[in-house]
């Protein structure tokens, strides 16, 4: 994913999965999106992160046609979401954040209707496969209203995939889903990604994004505040934390500037890079301080997230 300042390319040989150019959206006095520029390439597993109210769902809703941008352009596989909405919507499958269902119908009926809305007449084989992969086969003829929250969530996933969209957007798909189910859901989504589907994910479980996604965009107050590969973000925005238990329990003056707190007898030092570790140990040796225990804590996406949100 790259940030873009130029206009959308009209029709490339291999168009980007998603192109978003200078999208603005305002709800009353609230500026939800302020000039978002994003491009997700085909085949990516991409995370859209940000605190509540950052604009993630608004951006997804505009991409899916559920909301209209005030200005800017969005395209799915080169199809403009307004001018060429039919092709754009055929190219994208969205798992909405809200746990919604139609109380009148069974799981299979819902999936048949959704297929029909996308112009697919006979979709039984794929529906059966989806039901099996999402462990819903024995609930196929049950009314959706009678299912548990996790099952309803899986029905939403099945509905989003019923037309085999090349681009799949999951807006908080694992909210309220138990651990076992979450893992099986991710295994399924990861397999789809390996088969060539582009996956865009929003989640509050940052460890999920870190484990699954190769690129990340972080939104804050309707703006992209970080946009890079997960590895780059981790290395760029957060160093490592060194936790030391020393005798005597007194940090040498030369290391005071690295201190980021103390937890009982444990001193916490913030380092930008592993290479600085050698220098710290040298200072401790020269100061006659003995190291009783040492722990290096790597940053995770949550640290990056918190750092960016606080800044």
């Amino acid at each position: 994913m790259t940030s873009r300042n130029c206009c959308l390319q009209p029709e490339l040989v291999t168009p980007a999965a998603i192109e978003i150019h200078q999208v603005h959206k305002r709800f009353g006095s609230v500026q939800a999106l302020c000039g978002i520029d994003l491009t997700v390439q085909q085949g990516e597993f991409f995370a859209l992160l940000g605190p509540n109210g950052a604009g993630k769902s608004t951006l997804i809703n505009i991409l899916a046609g559920l909301a209209l941008a005030d200005s800017g352009r969005l395209a799915v596989l080169g199809h403009d979401v307004r001018a060429d909405y039919r092709q754009a919507r055929r190219s994208i499958g969205v798992v909405p954040q809200e746990l919604v269902y139609d109380a009148f119908f069974t799981v299979r009926e819902m999936l048949r209707f959704q297929s029909g809305y996308f112009g697919i007449r006979n979709n039984k084989a794929w529906i059966d496969e989806l039901l099996e992969r999402l462990a819903l086969t024995d609930k196929a003829d049950a009314y959706v209203r009678h299912l548990s929250g996790g099952m309803k969530r899986r029905v939403l996933v099945a509905q989003a995939l019923v037309h085999k969209p090349p681009v799949i957007v999951l807006d908080e798909p694992t909210a309220g889903v138990d651990v076992a189910l979450r893992q099986s859901l991710w295994a399924f989504i990861r397999r789809l990604n390996q088969q060539g589907h582009t996956i865009v994910l929003t989640t509050h479980y940052l460890e999920e994004a870190e484990a699954l996604c190769n690129r990340v965009a972080m939104l804050k107050q309707g703006q992209v505040v970080a946009l890079d590969t997960t590895a780059n973000l981790l290395s760029r925005h957060a160093g490592i934390q060194l936790r030391l238990k020393i005798t005597p329990p007194c940090l040498p003056d030369a290391l005071q500037e690295l201190s980021c707190g103390r937890d009982g007898e444990v001193f916490k030092l913030s380092l930008h890079h592993h290479a600085e570790l050698e220098n710290v140990l040298a200072v401790l040796r020269e100061s006659g301080v003995e190291v009783e225990d040492l722990e290096v804590v790597k940053p995770d996406l949550e640290d990056v997230f918190l750092e960016l949100v606080k800044s």
Binding site: A64, G65, L66, Y85, R86, Q87, R89, R90, V94, P96, E98, V100, Y101, D102, M110, F113, Q114, Y117, F118, G119, Q159, H163
Partner: peptide, 10 residues
């Protein structure tokens, strides 16, 4: 909210 099922398709 199930109106999304009709709004998402083409």
């Amino acid at each position: 909210g199930n109106i999304v099922f009709m709004l998402l398709p083409p």
